[in-house]
Nucleic acid binder design. Sequence first.
DNA 1: CTAGATACCTGTATGC
DNA 2: TGCATACAGGTATCTA
Length: 276
Amino acid sequence: MPELPEAETIARGLQAAIAGRRIRRVRVHRQEAVEPMSPAAFRCALTGRRVESVARRAKWIAAILDDGTRWVTQLRMTGRFTWSPPSALRAAPHLSVSLLLYGPQGGGVLRFYDVRRFGRMWILDPAAWSELDARLGVEPLSKDFTRRALAGLLDGSGAPLRNVLLDQERVAGLGNIYANEACYLARLDPRRPANSLDESEVARLHRAIRTVLRSAVERRGTSLSDYRDVLGGAGRFQADLKVYGRSGAVCPRCGGVVARTVLAGRSAFFCPGCQR
DNA sequence: CTAGATACCTGTATGC
DNA sequence: TGCATACAGGTATCTA
Ligand SMILES: [Zn+2]
């Protein structure tokens, strides 16, 4: 579900909801959500800690705690946070973890729901966090993401462009929706070998990635089915999708018909009329 | 090393 | 209605 814009929206929502508050109670409803930690060790690591801040890195959500550790979450396909007024931490369908937090301005319950159970949480010490951070690629909305940097990343691979854009060790945070939409915006065929792009094509792709991500962050993400922000609100970028999930639709740019193919086991959408 | 396939899990849509 | 199949926003791990 969540790619960079959704994770960013959720991280901002969590920053507003829980930064400055202290974790009073923790319940792990499904232990696989915190593996390889035990539920007891997970509860122990969080209970009594104050949340200093919450931010996004790639598609990860990371909360910095007052003991210097990081409480990190990977939402994978269907992970979702909700923030609501204080109440009992009861088990519920699809609920993996719940936490009760309080601060000077009151408190609430943070719940982590996950229908498909791929999502997971960890507690990382600073060294483990650095290791993770170092493994992840460049943030596409940062100033480190230059045309030259992108060119270097694409040069290293003859795999289809769409696949390379999904590699989190190259560009961090693009998922299948935005990788496909960026190829469309750049008028590039997602099946093209990544290292076949010339300089002007790389420039187009660079601009397209930033444009599509900035716009999707501004629209608070894409809600196709599961995704909601921390307060339950839907994103609005689904109305701006040009190709993703739209095979058979008319291309708004050239009047062609949007096609679907499968690359590395995942759908790729594009317009054969205007993407080369 | 690379790149593709597979596994993980549940829900929903579609077709017979 | 019931049942089988395909597919879904991700990523770790296996295999060639
Ligand atoms: Zn077109």
